[in-house]
Design a protein around this nucleic acid. Structure first.
Lengths: 207, 207
DNA sequence: ACCTGAACACCGTTCAAGT
DNA sequence: ACCTGAACACCGTTCAAGT
């Protein structure tokens, strides 16, 4: 007899799940809703994903892939400080454009339903490269964590609506980013590098 | 006839929910599990909380109360920079001791199931006070957001296991915090205040 | 080889009935 | 005035039966 032909694909299922995620949050990503969106019934999804958790993990992985691809070209920048600012700004823009997926990426997912650590490392690589030129290889990891923590913390609080005391939020991000990036210096370098460099590209179009 | 006497209380229910939260995450905080823990059946909880979301909100509120009470006394500190570091460090310690509640506090909860904004403001007040002494009232909000974003971002990534590239995580927090706090200066002040102040209390007992 | 309806366990929530 | 069992809708997941 004629075996049933596939009516959907893993990629299509993940895309449908991601759309539902952005539209209605994680709660809206039910197996039934995803299945309905790709034109099958819920049990069919289990042919491609062993569980809802695995599907969420796949959604997170594609989002992390997008982020990595977005940041990768920014490592090659004449001015390292400018590169760091551009990477942080692109990171923030990604979060604004994919708020729910971003949320999932930094959520405390069970270890077996998380994107591979290597993928996180790939996404972090450009920033580490750039700050290494500023602070040296010794302090590169700490410095990258400083910038990443700031960017993630700022964006996370933005997205959850924690910044309700007023003020210009975009300007606040630039203010902090400038202060942070300016503070990145190679401790082995002489006093010449210590010239204050504040207030420079603060209001450039890319911020 | 004799009307049924209360077998539990809102406070007891919230406490039970918080214990379940820390023990097994948000998924473990089911109405049935909470009810069983306080010795009633699930429907009885609806006498005190209109929904599970409202109960989660109440749990978050008590946790935020604890955090506020923890930070409140730290605003009075001889050295403002030291005060800022102490506040950030206490914030991080709270997160380590209440990881799941911390997670909920900074989660994207529905607006009607979030602790009151005033309570967040109260928790943030000590830091704002302290940094105001460093950067002036004009920049106090931006500067407080810089420190908060860093602390939250760092802790959040710590808790979700994003720091897997090795290195001393405690030292990394201190490195970033020192760099950040040192960068807080009053722009109206003279060049005298610009003396580099790095490498000072980095390894003090309080860090 | 993939799809489906039916079924199961579990959850949040409602409500009439009890005391 | 509070507590309960029973019921409902919904969810993730399994599986035998279909093509």
């Amino acid at each position: 007899v004629s075996p049933a032909r596939a009516r959907t694909s893993s990629a299509e299922i993940v895309a449908a799940g991601r759309e539902l995620l952005e539209a209605g949050g994680l709660d809206a990503v039910t197996m039934q809703a995803v299945a309905h969106r790709v034109g099958v019934r819920a049990p069919s999804l289990y042919k491609r994903f062993p569980s809802r958790g695995a599907l969420i993990a796949a959604i997170a992985t594609t989002a992390l892939n997008d982020l990595r691809d977005l940041l990768a070209p920014l490592a090659v920048n004449a001015d390292a400080r400018d590169g760091a600012r551009r990477i942080a700004t692109a990171f923030r823009r990604f979060a604004h454009q994919n708020p729910r997926a971003y949320e999932v990426l930094f959520m405390n997912l069970p270890a077996d339903h998380r994107p591979q650590p290597e993928l996180f490392a790939e996404a972090a690589a450009p920033l580490i490269q750039v700050v290494e030129r500023l602070v040296g290889s010794e302090r590169a990891l700490d410095a990258a964590r400083l910038v990443t923590a700031y960017a993630h913390g700022f964006v996370s609080m933005e997205l959850t609506g924690a910044f309700r005391l007023g003020g210009d939020v975009n300007a606040a991000f630039g203010y902090g980013l400038d202060a942070l990036v300016d503070s990145l210096r190679d401790p082995r370098a002489g006093a010449k590098a210590r010239t204050p460099v504040s207030r420079r590209t603060r209001r450039s179009k890319s911020h």
